[in-house]
């Protein structure tokens, strides 16, 4: 190779190594037989510059992704779960990561929404049940759990409380009826006793009092009848 061409190439390579990004072999200055080789050398120089450009662009792309992830995490900490990664800004090879991350956030949002709803339903149910039970404890059996006010998962408890109210109410009604009947029976017994004493008086007058008393005692023994 001619010394002049070698010098040109050496000079360009030196400049390139020192960071001159414009350094390139001027093909016109190179003799014909080495033009092809110098074109290849220029391509190598260009390739290296392209590599640093591509690496820097990748870094910038990653920055965009990390900024979004940082933003999403920040929003989550603030309780906002509605944000998502902008898939359009993510390079092809990382799109799946973005989609998966969005799915995670979506699932998280749904789970937390479910948790919030459960919490709210429980609060409503406790409040409704508490009100009804407090009324019952004060003797008010006219209340009942409004099943429209509580969520489906607490309906069974609501229905059980309502059944319990009905059952207590029925037992009380039964007791009241028995009490009434007992009162009635007490009155009848007293009347019967008074009436029996009158009959005994008549029986004494007729001279058959002792006989009647003996018959009555036998009957009493037979029917375990308690005398008043």
């Amino acid at each position: 190779m001619e010394k002049e061409s070698v010098n040109i190439i050496d000079n360009v390579l030196e400049k390139h190594l020192k960071g001159d990004l414009e350094a390139k072999i001027d093909i016109e200055d190179i003799n014909e037989e080495h033009k092809n080789m110098c074109e290849k050398l220029n391509s190598v120089l260009e390739y290296e510059i392209e590599c640093t450009k591509s690496a820097f662009e990748k870094e910038c792309t990653f920055r965009k992704i990390f900024l979004q992830i940082g933003n999403l995490c920040n929003q989550i900490l603030k309780g906002n779960l509605s944000k998502r990664m902008n898939i359009l800004t993510i390079p092809f090879e990382m799109k799946n990561m973005g989609i998966n991350l969005n799915t995670v956030f979506e699932t998280l949002q749904k789970d937390i929404e479910i948790l919030h709803k459960s919490e709210s339903d429980l609060k409503i149910a406790i409040s409704v049940f508490g009100f009804v039970l407090s009324k019952i404890s004060k003797g008010d059996l006219s209340v009942k759990v409004d099943l429209n006010e509580i969520s489906e998962e607490y309906e069974t408890i609501g229905e059980d409380i309502n059944s319990m109210i009905l059952s207590i109410r029925k037992h009380i009604e039964d007791l009241q009826n028995r009490e009434l009947e007992l009162e009635k029976s007490k009155i009848s017994t007293k009347y019967f006793k008074d009436y029996s004493e009158k009959i005994l008086e008549f029986a004494d007058d007729w001279g058959i009092g002792e006989v009647l008393k003996s018959v009555m005692k036998d009957w009493e023994k037979e029917h375990s009848y308690t005398s008043y």
Partner: peptide
Amino acid sequence: LGIQAGNKYI
């Protein structure tokens, strides 16, 4: 510091 970003420095 110069970041080599293709044909320019940042």
